[in-house]
Design a protein around this nucleic acid. Sequence first.
DNA 1: TGTACATCAGTGAACGCGCGTTCACTGATGTAC
DNA 2: TGTACATCAGTGAACGCGCGTTCACTGATGTAC
Lengths: 216, 216
Amino acid sequence: MRENIWSVDTCTCTLVNVKAVTRERNPRGQGERLRSDLVEAAVDLIAENRSIDGVSLRGAAKRAGVSPMAVYNHFEDKDALVEAAIQQCWNDFQVVIAEALEVDDPVARLRAAGDAYVRFGLAKPGQYAVMFTGGQTLPPHLVGIGLSSFDVLVQMVQDILDLNGDDRDALFVAAEVHTWIHGIVLLDGCVPNQVDWPSTDRLLDELMTRLGLTST
Amino acid sequence: MRENIWSVDTCTCTLVNVKAVTRERNPRGQGERLRSDLVEAAVDLIAENRSIDGVSLRGAAKRAGVSPMAVYNHFEDKDALVEAAIQQCWNDFQVVIAEALEVDDPVARLRAAGDAYVRFGLAKPGQYAVMFTGGQTLPPHLVGIGLSSFDVLVQMVQDILDLNGDDRDALFVAAEVHTWIHGIVLLDGCVPNQVDWPSTDRLLDELMTRLGLTST
DNA sequence: TGTACATCAGTGAACGCGCGTTCACTGATGTAC
DNA sequence: TGTACATCAGTGAACGCGCGTTCACTGATGTAC
């Protein structure tokens, strides 16, 4: 009965619109834990708003169960918090893709990566939108992460071309793959239910076939 | 010399951050002109922010050179203004596409429409993003406009399939076209300069060829 | 062993800003009598 | 022909809200002496 010392009314009153209000102060030397909590909260806001515009310093602080001022112990300003959140999105993405890269056969590898890519995009549409449609609004040093991810794609395509003795330009073919898969992800989350839209699986199969990226 | 009756300082001071401050009251019976000015201003805000989040009632009023309250003479509330702005974006889009539909040959017609589509997307990335990546946030009755535009695409594809005696499902092939072209438009505006990205023209040619939509 | 002190992990109050919306008002102009 | 009046196209002040940021503060805890 010890846990019921607070009435139900008190609980709902304080918890109804806010998560993690029950946070307790970190022990000495563990202050950095708040940093990752704040980043996580900011990523949640990105996920819900599908944009960095919906991320507010006060909102992230509230979710982390902390006063707005506590944010300044870990971040220069709001922009630094948002930047860390985007960085976190890219890290999560790269973890997902890295798994697929362990597949041996080049064709199966690209297909697995495509699958992982699409699954990430559909499961986390907010993060995906910020990462791949943010455009010029992204801080410059985060652009590099996107570039290195594209390099990985070019290499996967090159492996298949090599396997098939195909002399097309890998960068061009990779651009074809990326444009198409990007459209597949974004439209799937956007098409109204009335339309008998094809599954992403079927579209991915077609992509591989139509772009000549199967084994010959 | 009559035009210089105002000093340069006065001009810059009042015009620097605001357009059309010099609006004068519409004559009696012409009140509806403000409505279209407000819609235009809201579309400008969509264009600049690439999102409806950046559209504010006060911002649109300011651009139209009018007090925020004047908006309520023409729109129920802010949402109604935003909805009218999105509607306007679709109208502009349909005008652009309609031109291409006059081409006689089915293959050339789809190619012309694709060209018009891409040009619209690249010239008006903000409007394009709101129209094609807004998702569930769009008011339901605007979804119908998007659907009818997709129907036009399906018909164009069907015409080519008929011409070639190709028995593929037109809706499926149209979905392939739309996903790919969507990706082409969105990534083109987003890829960093370092990458030697292919031109949209070349990608469109490839799209037609790879998807088997040329004349046989 | 006791205690003063620096450090750490935060809080609280206040600022000016832009936002959507409310209510009450103004002042020119066409029209009915 | 003159004038009272309804209509039209707006304005002005105020409201409460959430925002980023500033400055000054608190109170627990480990550590040096």
